[in-house]
Design a binder for these strands. Structure first.
Lengths: 224, 224
DNA sequence: TTGCGTATGATAGTATTACTATTATATTTG
DNA sequence: CAAATATAATAGTAATACTATCATACGCAA
């Protein structure tokens, strides 16, 4: 079986976790632990206990837990971009491409056996709950210089260029896409926890309705 | 001079800070300190040093710093709703009302002498940087039960009802408004720190252009 | 086979944080 | 003046986010 992995920015880690067993264990179990405990209550100590290693060993892979979160979320965006590339490569019409993009953003994230050591639905929940913590810190600018956000930026840029294809006059393609990506996870969060802030319900039809919400917003906004 | 104050949910505090000098000092200086240090590096100890009081005294007003943040942000939403009420009360046409709302959301927040003990532009920066930390925690559901989010919900609800007036067929008024409110502060944040995620520049015309971005998104999305 | 480098484990230690508790003092109110 | 209440002063605790040191185990090259 072909093994697919993503090349992530080197500043995300001290030692590449994809190359060693301990590294893969760190990734796998940190996804599960952060999902369970929430990022604030997740510590390298607890992770070390879980994988029967030591705090010091984890610190040899990641400078701190914040960078580990960056790593996981970058992985998520790379994975999403990969899925979007697969879905759009055969399409010619930019409108179809944009729809395919929205469908993948809105769809349910399920465990994908292509990546044995990442639990995608847990990772999706982490993105939903913790994404903003990667940039809402005093280190944004430094992190940005280190290139920690390139996965997200790359995805945004790609979709923005599709919008430009559809309507070269629309002046805010990047803003609209970043808004759309963040709205997708916010609406899911609100459906779960603060239901009066959304009209979507956290039920079986959620992903379908989220798609309709995003589609109407994006296509109406950019039409000439 | 008339003194205006907002009635905020009682669960936000242990002792109402608006009633005492120490309380007002806590509010005033916590706004400035959080703005300077960021919420993570802000502590009650540092605040106590600043106001020449003690940690224990601050804890008599607020259960913890998280609730204090809730308090400040609830104050902000109440203030915004008040400004929107002022601006829209004389308007009959729901389209005009919605535009007035968007103008206030997008406009620059300046120091307003009506509220001597809150520095509104510092508070706006806090909202921009720290808002999401009020709900992205393991206590969302408990906090929600305590009513800590009513200021934000109340604002959302009010604006959503204007959308319903304009187009009763549009199915996602609440989702669109929560998206708009969050997009406003996200785009400002991106303009400042991650400029490739927006098409707006953090310059003098920022607020004007943010208005145009939001207006085109909202009005195009809801039109019949 | 020896020896070397590297990855990991074991253990200890530190400054800071987010509190809780207790007691003393000052101020307000009845 | 007495009683109630707010605040100050001080101490203490468990957890966190690291850093440092040393020992061991493993693979590989001479």
């Amino acid at each position: 079986m072909a093994v697919l992995s993503f090349k992530l920015n080197e500043h995300l880690y001290l030692r590449d976790p994809q190359h060693t067993e301990l590294g893969q264990n760190i990734i796998k179990n940190s996804v599960n632990l952060i999902d369970q405990l929430g990022f604030e209550h997740f510590t390298f100590k607890k992770l070390a206990e879980e994988i029967e290693s030591t705090e010091a060993s984890v610190y040899r892979y990641f400078e701190n837990k914040h960078r580990l979160l960056h790593y996981l979320i970058s992985w998520y965006w790379s994975w999403l971009e990969y899925k979007i590339d697969m879905a759009t490569s055969s399409l010619k019409n930019p409108t179809d491409k944009l729809k395919a993009f929205l469908r993948i953003v809105a769809e349910e994230k399920k465990y994908d056996p292509t990546f044995e050591f990442v639990n995608e639905d847990a990772l999706y929940r982490i993105v939903m709950d913790e994404l903003d913590k990667t940039f809402l810190t005093k280190w944004v600018d430094a992190d940005n210089k280190d290139g920690l956000f390139i996965s997200f930026k790359s995805l945004c840029k790609k979709i923005a260029s599709i919008i430009v294809e559809i309507n070269p006059q629309y002046p805010y393609p990047n803003g609209l896409i970043s808004t759309t990506l963040l709205a997708a996870k916010q609406q899911h969060f609100f459906a779960k926890h603060l239901s009066s802030l959304t009209n979507l319900k956290d039920d079986k039809k959620f992903h379908q309705n989220l798609y309709l919400f995003l589609e109407s917003m994006v296509f109406n906004t950019i039409r000439k």
